[in-house]
Design a protein around this nucleic acid. Structure first.
Lengths: 199, 199
DNA sequence: TTGCAACTTGACCGACCGGTCATATTAGCT
DNA sequence: AGCTAATATGACCGGTCGGTCAAGTTGCAA
């Protein structure tokens, strides 16, 4: 059957955009089914529960992320510290594009979900945490490269990377609250000044 | 009638803790009424809608915040830059205390709500944005004081304050995702290194 | 060509959602 | 004491929620 994988994918696709631009609780199974042109029964054939769907969405989105703008921004041909400029740029353009189309900044799917479900579902929380850990790792490797290249002073790259990730998520949070992607432009450059000394 | 104000307050109190530690969508009017020992009809006597309740909760919480740990941390008797240490400390202890009692880090009510409702309700978004603007102002004043006292080099205090706020919110986001208040301790000190140069 | 598993269909479920309402009850003023 | 307006009561509303299920239909392997 050729449509099988397709059906599953259509469900994920419909859910992905909706969870991203609204919230987990606000998007119902029925709405997802309708927009994916799938019946309720089919939905529950592929996903035991709504929660299992959001897990799939997180996984796929993390993949998109890793192979998408994260991969582009962290291009190893670029001087290490320059990659952070690309990261901020990419975030800016993504949020701006979404706002121009939908009218609102969706923010970061992972950040959104993390704040929504972390206190209520430890498994989802762990999933989201793993995504952040992966992002942190990319940042850390870049910092280590920068240190090796002599473009920055040695530092606690692990904690510094986490701090930079926190800053990025915080920027996106404020940008979403103001519904204004320019926040990323105005404040983004400071990401390179964040550093935690090694002891 | 003596119980009148009391009833309204009981509703707000019950809602405040629940919205903070769960989410807006997840907490129903019925649950709030039950826990506040109030009937549905009474609830809608005081609040035209659930949304009006959350507005009241935001306002009261912002007040608690301003007169609570924000006021303490930004104590004018402290050297300006030291106040940021107190800010981080206060955030750390608050989150830790909540986790020890409830098992989970609730995060920042404003950050939580901002990511949950910003794309769906511009009025709530504006309310939350106003709270952030107030916090930013406090930070900015502190930075200006620090510059005046010569403890830091002159900088774009407005944007730097916003960047520091973003960082704080990002730290709380990661702490919540890891369910670990230590994130604030590990990474908090970097808040003082964030600066955006004036041009 | 038959058999079986993968998939689809759409009606159905109980629970809960935010919100309404007519009817008490109460408190404070005159 | 009597009136009025504020507050309280709890049954009730239509709609939606996540989820179930029995009965199809389809594609593929043997």
């Amino acid at each position: 059957m050729q449509t099988a994988i397709d059906t599953r994918q259509r469900i994920i696709d419909a859910a992905k955009t909706r969870f991203h631009s609204r919230s987990y609780a606000d998007v119902g199974v029925k709405e997802i089914c309708d927009s994916a042109d799938v019946q309720k029964g089919s939905f529950y054939h592929f996903f035991p529960s709504k929660r299992d769907l959001v897990v799939a969405v997180i996984e796929e989105f993390a993949q998109d992320w890793a192979t998408g703008f994260i991969a582009e921004a962290f291009d190893s041909r670029l001087p290490p510290m320059e990659r952070f400029d690309y990261l901020i740029d990419a975030a800016y353009f993504w949020q701006k594009a979404a706002r121009d189309i939908k009218g609102h900044i969706p923010g970061c799917l992972f950040g959104n979900l993390a704040l929504e479900v972390s206190t209520q579902d430890d498994i989802l929380r762990a999933k989201l945490n793993a995504v952040f850990t992966m992002a942190k790792k990319r940042i850390m490797e870049t910092l280590d490269e920068a240190v090796a290249a002599g473009s920055i002073e040695p530092l606690d790259s692990d904690n510094s990377a986490e701090a930079m990730l926190a800053y990025l998520e915080g920027l996106i949070l404020l940008a979403k609250t103001q519904n204004d992607p320019d926040v990323l432009y105005r404040l983004g450059k400071a990401i390179k000044s964040i550093r935690i000394e090694s002891d």
